[in-house]
């Protein structure tokens, strides 16, 4: 059985690192009009998670409190 790697993963990691340094050096405002945008669904999911997770965190700290 022969294993064939179809991608050069090391190069992908190097490219991601190069892009990271490039993006990090650019001002945030430059991307305000970027065409690449996450979907509304993704944004909703993340924002909902933030609210739900906050409640979970609060509940875990106050689990001994009995609320009527």
């Amino acid at each position: 059985m022969k294993k064939t790697f179809t991608q050069e993963f090391y190069l992908l990691e190097q490219e991601a690192k190069r892009l990271f340094n490039l993006f990090d050096s650019l001002p945030d405002e430059l991307f305000d009009r970027s065409r690449a945008q996450p979907s509304t669904m993704s944004l909703c999911k993340v924002k909902s998670f933030a609210k739900a997770y906050r409640s979970i965190v609060l509940l875990s700290h106050e689990r001994d409190v009995i609320l009527n």
Partner: peptide, 26 residues
Amino acid sequence: DRHKSKIFSYILMCVKQQELAEDIFQ
């Protein structure tokens, strides 16, 4: 909302797939 474009652009540039970029963004 302030940083979504920059973060998403970076992810998309790296992975080059919309759906995968959405997953990594989330």
